[in-house]
């Protein structure tokens, strides 16, 4: 029932590579929420495509 009660912390050394992934994922959030073509190099296509999602996710859009 309580299999994890003796959880061992994962050493920081092993966690560091995951920070790199976090940076990439943060870029992805930026792409969805704020990018206007600078990152995606698609002009404003992706920006416009994801327009309604931006509003409904609560990000200031326009």
């Amino acid at each position: 029932m309580d299999p994890i009660s003796a959880q061992q912390p994962i050493p920081v050394r092993q966690l560091l590579p995951a920070l790199l992934v976090t940076t990439l994922l943060a870029l992805l959030v930026y792409l969805v929420q704020f990018d206007q073509g600078a990152l995606s190099q698609s002009g404003t296509f992706l920006h416009e495509l994801m327009h309604d999602g931006r509003h409904l996710l609560g990000v200031p859009c326009h």
Binding site: Q7, Q8, P9, I10, L15, A18, L19, V21, T22, L25, A26, L28, V29, L31, V32, Q33, E48, L49, M50, H51, D52, G53, R54, L56, L57
Partner: peptide
């Protein structure tokens, strides 16, 4: 744009979920 809504929330969920996993791994224990 109505289709793009799913793209936006799907990508956002993917990214947020990945960060969540990193935080979970860091906080575990």
């Amino acid at each position: 744009q109505r289709f793009g809504l799913f793209l936006a929330t799907g990508l956002y969920g993917l990214a947020v979920g990945g960060v969540f996993g990193v935080l979970f791994a860091t906080l575990r224990g």
